[in-house]
Write a protein that binds this DNA or RNA. Structure first.
Length: 271
DNA sequence: TACCAGGCAACTT
DNA sequence: AAGTTGCATGGT
């Protein structure tokens, strides 16, 4: 199919997902208990589902129905650094990911680096997810459900390389098994959602904003990490004390996408 | 060798 | 309310 404003190489390193695996051509992508093989040649996108689910689920995951041209035109021209970032990362989108998966993944992300986050998520899935497909000689596993994680002890999380975050993961899974249903949070308004997320140990302001944005698809969410902070202070002339409120006024709606452009730009510029 | 990585909870003032 | 500190682990 034909697509615009979508680039799989950019999405693979965009930092919103840690389950895109490079294969001989394109990527093997896992989300929840589904897998697909995705390839791209210019504007030509090819998706092959490797599991039973409906292909429409992948279209939704990739946010294909949204008009990125229109959104981009609203963001463009506000700031020269953002303009450059948008030109650099034209194929960046917001993926529609699973809330529970984002809670676990971004708990692991706190004060951590991209490689180790990816490795830890991989170990967690390999160890406790279900085998869902083989591809080019490798096995791929679903993201483990709370039931898959039922019997784990703190040390089992530690063995996945998550470090001191082990106890947060353990406690969250225990609470979820006890009835805490993060899927029910979809019904909450923004403020209640953020409050509910931050009640979970291991989730502070930044991780809550990541989960809110990537897992609950609240597109104005604007996570401020160490890198974004530098960008706002250095290129948007924001004072330290105004960081938290900045995005609300500067990006009334699509702050999340703007944040992704800035983050991706930073990631590629570093090299 | 220190310092950093998509920060957070617990503690001190 | 606001500021400080310890934290697992792998990379540079």
């Amino acid at each position: 199919m034909k697509v615009s404003y979508l680039n799989i190489d950019q999405l693979a390193v965009s930092g919103q997902t840690f389950r895109w695996y490079s294969v001989s051509e394109g990527y093997l992508v896992v989300h929840k208990d589904q897998a697909m093989h995705i390839r791209q040649d210019g504007s030509d996108l090819d998706i092959k589902a490797l599991t039973e689910g409906p292909i429409e689920a992948w279209h939704d995951y990739l946010d294909l129905q949204r008009d990125y041209k229109a959104i981009r035109s609203r963001l463009y021209g506000k700031n020269t650094y953002l303009d450059a970032a948008m030109t650099c990362g034209q194929g960046i989108r917001l993926l529609n990911q699973d809330a529970y998966e984002m809670v676990i993944t971004f708990m692991i992300s706190a004060n951590n680096n991209m490689k180790r986050i990816k490795d830890s998520v991989f170990k967690l899935c390999q160890g406790y997810g279900k085998l869902i497909c083989h591809f080019e000689g490798k096995d791929y596993y679903s993201f483990p459900s709370i039931y898959d994680l039922r019997a784990l002890e703190i040390k089992d999380y530690r063995a996945c390389g998550v470090g001191y975050r082990d106890k947060y993961l353990y406690e969250f899974v225990q609470e979820a098994l006890g009835g805490l249903d993060v899927d029910a949070f979809h019904a909450y308004d923004d403020e209640d959602l953020k409050t509910a997320l931050m009640k979970i140990k291991g989730i502070g302001e930044k991780v809550a904003n990541c989960v809110l944005l990537f897992g609950y698809h609240r597109r104005h969410g604007f996570p401020i990490d160490t890198w974004i902070k530098k960008v706002l202070v250095g290129h948007f002339n924001v004072q330290e004390k105004d960081l938290k409120d900045f995005s609300k006024t500067f990006f009334p709606e699509e702050g999340g996408l703007a944040q992704q452009y800035l983050f991706y730009y930073g990631a590629v510029e570093k090299k």
